[in-house]
Structures are given as structure tokens and as C-alpha cells.
Computed example of a mutant assay.
Amino acid sequence: MPRKKNKRKKLHVKKGDEVKVIAGNDKGREGRILAVFPDKERVLVEGINMRVHHDQPTQENPEGGRIEREVSIHISNVMVIDPSTGEPTRIGRKRIEEDSGGRWVRYAKKSGEILDN
């Protein structure tokens, strides 16, 4: 179902998060998120879902050839790794009161540890 242009879905992952793949060919493997594509609800994970890409020769790469690179996977197939336990966990959001009125942070549901700095 198409979304309104000004209404973005809140995602449970961010660039730089350590995640574990919970479905697909790379199930059980872990990696760091390199990029998040919120419109497509997909993420690019380091070393996960590798595919062979055929590059044409260019001035930078005169040989061309076959290069393995990551391909995005659906965001529902990854879970954030809890920093304290090292296990996959669901993510919650809560408001932290500060001097300037507070801010929203993500936290691990298993341990309660805050993920955002």
C-alpha cells in the first residue's frame, strides 16, 4: 500500500546498528548496517546477501569484471543485537527528560539498555 509522501514509517534500525539476520539465505549471520532505505523498507548489511555484479571496464577499473557486493534485504528480516547481552532483541521507544524538554530514544526490550547516544 503506498504511503503518503509526508508520512514516513518509523524504523527500528539505523545506520551503524549491529543486526542479526532472522530469515532468508543468510539466517543467523550478523553484520553492521551500511545504509537504510526507508521508502522501500530495506537495509544494506555488511557482508550479507552478497551478489555478483558485472562491471564494465572504466578508466578507474580498466579490467572490469565480476565484483561481489551487498544487496539490500527487507527490514523485517533483521533484528538489532542487544549491546549488553549480544542477543537479538526487539526495540522500544521512550522519552528521556532533559534540559531542553526531552527526546525520544530507542531501547532494547530484553535488557532495557538505551541504544541511541
Results as ranks from 00 to 15, higher is better:
Pro2Arg: 14
Arg3Thr: 13
Lys5Glu: 13
Lys5Asp: 13
Arg8Val: 14
Lys9Gln: 08
Lys9Phe: 05
Lys10Trp: 01
Leu11Tyr: 05
His12Thr: 14
His12Arg: 13
Lys14Asn: 11
Lys14Gln: 12
Gly16Trp: 04
Gly16Gln: 10
Asp17Met: 11
Asp17Val: 01
Glu18Asp: 14
Lys20Ser: 05
Lys20Gly: 06
Val21His: 05
Ala23Trp: 12
Gly24Leu: 09
Asp26His: 06
Asp26Phe: 03
Asp26Glu: 05
Lys27Gly: 11
Lys27Met: 14
Gly28Asn: 07
Arg29Asn: 14
Glu30Ser: 08
Glu30Val: 11
Gly31Asp: 04
Arg32Asn: 12
Arg32Tyr: 07
Arg32Ile: 15
Ile33Tyr: 07
Ile33Pro: 09
Ile33Ser: 07
Ile33Gly: 08
Ile33Asn: 07
Leu34Lys: 11
Ala35Asp: 10
Pro38Met: 11
Pro38Tyr: 09
Lys40Leu: 12
Glu41Asp: 13
Val43Met: 11
Val43Cys: 11
Leu44Val: 04
Leu44Arg: 03
Val45Lys: 01
Val45Glu: 06
Gly47Arg: 05
Gly47Ile: 04
Asn49His: 12
Met50Leu: 15
Val52Ala: 12
Val52Gln: 12
Asp55Tyr: 13
Asp55Phe: 12
Gln56Pro: 03
Gln56Cys: 06
Thr58Gly: 12
Thr58Cys: 10
Glu60Asn: 07
Asn61Met: 15
Asn61Asp: 15
Asn61Leu: 15
Glu63Gly: 13
Glu63Arg: 15
Gly64Ala: 12
Gly65Ser: 07
Arg66Gly: 04
Glu68Tyr: 14
Glu68Ser: 14
Val71Ile: 05
His74Thr: 10
His74Val: 06
Ile75Gly: 07
Ile75Phe: 04
Ser76Phe: 09
Ser76Thr: 14
Ser76Gln: 13
Ser76Gly: 11
Asn77Ile: 02
Asn77Phe: 07
Asn77Val: 06
Val78Thr: 05
Met79Asn: 04
Met79Val: 01
Val80Glu: 03
Asp82Tyr: 09
Pro83Ile: 02
Pro83Leu: 02
Pro83Val: 03
Gly86Phe: 09
Gly86Cys: 06
Glu87Tyr: 06
Glu87Val: 05
Pro88Ile: 02
Arg90Met: 13
Ile91Cys: 00
Gly92Ser: 01
Gly92Thr: 01
Arg93Pro: 09
Lys94Asn: 01
Arg95Gln: 07
Ile96Phe: 08
Ile96Pro: 08
Glu97Thr: 14
Glu98Gly: 12
Glu98Trp: 01
Glu98Val: 07
Asp99Cys: 01
Asp99His: 02
Gly101Tyr: 03
Gly102Thr: 09
Arg103Leu: 00
Trp104Thr: 02
Trp104Asn: 02
Trp104Leu: 02
Trp104Pro: 00
Ala108Val: 00
Lys109His: 00
Lys109Thr: 00
Lys109Arg: 00
Ser111Glu: 04
Gly112His: 02
Gly112Ala: 06
Glu113Gly: 03
Glu113Gln: 10
Leu115Tyr: 04
Asp116Leu: 00
Asn117Ile: 00
Asn117Ala: 06
